[in-house]
Write a protein that binds this DNA or RNA. Structure first.
Length: 434
DNA sequence: TCTGGGGTCCTAGGACCC
DNA sequence: TCTGGGGTCCTAGGACCC
């Protein structure tokens, strides 16, 4: 068989109880003790040690509801320290890059590796997995599990098995496993464990009698598409070992940037809300400029505490477009505060506020996508002026003039990226200014 | 000038992920 | 008394354009 999707090998490396493990790395006294890491304002659990999971504490459980368990079992609650977790995450990603040049950092505690072509370096994929585990433990003290499969979905599933079944010692490889053994395992995993099957779809599948991963794998992907859509069809194909999701090594720039927080104490005045909103805009704006984008609109929202049934509830949001896309903090803040004044109502006790930067596009610094588009007639002069300026800046090799679709719209791009809404590009052989 | 079909672009809502 | 903060993709429908 020729090299193709069917011959892919992916590994998923994932840190066990990431935030708790990071805290334990710097405070060994926490080892073996029941530990939870808490969200902002110490509101609810965002990470749990195995000891806490064994007590039945769910992800997202409010800290105050654990009071009894805290007393009985001495659960230790820690405020989260995202700077620390980010730093530890970077160390792990650096180690992983010594195993494969093709790494996708999927989240703060998970990475996919493409192992295609690496097999000659190792006795087996599992041997490599065990080496990864040992090295990360030795260099960072963080425990990880490794799942290996011929699609990302199978690698995720293998990771789950490696974590749950002690026999595997933290590393599970579906690619070298006998079909019978794989089937035996998949028949014993609930369908909801599959990547892409959440609460709603999981319930719908169970209603159809599809309760295990194996049962989902045995369905006809086409039928699943008819019932649930193309995402589900892809998931089924991935379960069958047909890789549909490519490794994404380069993180694309964000399409929206959110900054929001719950308040520790309820807020009533517009001034306090304005102070919070100003801070959120500054944070979001930093991210925006960090990815060299500008935003075309900003959204502001505020809400009361829905858990306080005795309070009258109010929530509202408003989106404010900019005449010209911007990343300027003064403009962003000005618009946000104007929006806040429009939605603020006195007399409510507010719990949360946030801003969202939307309609993001690259600034002239160039993420390598659509810069400018228009029609050949009428707008060509403006168009050519922009083209000339960008051409001077980036050079002919990276900047192309193209026509999109059949509507004779013209667009420019730098690099290889295709604008969001353009389905077909035909590159024009020559560029003539009028 | 006429018309239909192909295409773009936007929005809201729903589902999922960590 | 106390309940997180981010993100993504897909779909359907409609306005508008040539």
């Amino acid at each position: 068989m020729s090299a193709g999707p069917a011959d892919q090998i992916f590994a998923l490396v994932d840190v066990n109880n990431m935030y708790v493990s990071c805290e334990r790395a710097f405070n060994p006294k926490l080892r073996g003790r029941p530990v939870v890491v808490l969200s902002n304002n110490d509101g609810c659990a965002v990470a749990r040690s195995n000891e806490v999971k064994a007590l039945g504490v769910k992800m997202g459980a409010p800290w105050f509801e654990m009071k009894d368990l805290v007393r009985q079992h001495g659960i230790i609650g820690l405020s989260s320290n995202y700077t620390l977790y980010g730093d530890m995450s970077n160390r792990i990603m650096t180690i992983l890059r010594t195993y494969s040049p093709n790494v996708e950092v999927y989240s703060i505690d998970e990475s996919f590796l493409n192992l295609a072509g690496m097999s000659s370096l190792w006795e087996s994929p599992s041997a490599m997995g065990q080496d990864i585990r040992a090295k990360i433990l030795q260099w960072t003290t963080l425990p990880v599990c490794v799942g290996i499969g011929s699609s990302k979905t199978l690698a995720k599933l293998a990771n789950h098995v490696g974590k749950k079944v002690p026999l595997f010692d933290g590393v599970c490889d579906f690619t070298t496993m006998s079909a019978a053994r794989e089937r035996w395992l998949l028949e014993r995993i609930a369908v909801g464990e599959v990547w892409g099957v959440g609460r709603r779809i999981g319930a719908a599948l169970e209603g159809m009698g599809i309760t295990t991963v194996q049962a989902l794998k045995d369905t006809e992907p086409r039928d699943m598409r008819a019932r649930f859509g193309v995402v589900m069809e892809r998931t089924c194909n991935e379960l069958r070992g047909l890789s549909c999701l490519a490794l994404e090594e380069i993180a694309p720039p964000r399409q929206e940037i959110v900054s929001s927080r719950s308040f520790g104490e309820l807020v009533t005045s517009v001034d306090e809300l304005a102070e919070a909103v100003t801070l959120y805009v500054a944070r979001a704006g930093e991210k925006l400029r960090g990815q060299h984008s500008v935003c075309g609109a900003i959204h502001i929202f505020i809400q009361t505490n829905p858990f306080r049934r005795q309070d009258e509830q109010y929530s509202n949001g408003v989106s404010i477009p900019f005449a010209e896309p911007t990343a300027d903090n003064r403009e962003l803040t000005g618009a946000a505060l104007r929006g806040l004044r429009r939605i603020y109502r006195p007399g409510f006790r507010y719990k949360k506020a946030g801003v969202m930067l939307m309609d993001l596009s690259p600034d002239k610094g160039g993420q390598g996508t659509l810069f400018e588009s228009g029609r050949p007639r009428g707008e060509s002069q403006k168009f050519m002026a922009v083209f000339d300026a960008l051409n001077k800046r980036y050079g002919k090799d990276t900047l192309q003039l193209a026509s999109a679709g059949t509507s004779n719209r013209w667009a420019m791009r730098a690099g290889n990226r295709t604008p969001k809404y353009t389905t077909s590009w035909q590159e024009l052989p020559t560029v003539r200014a009028k």
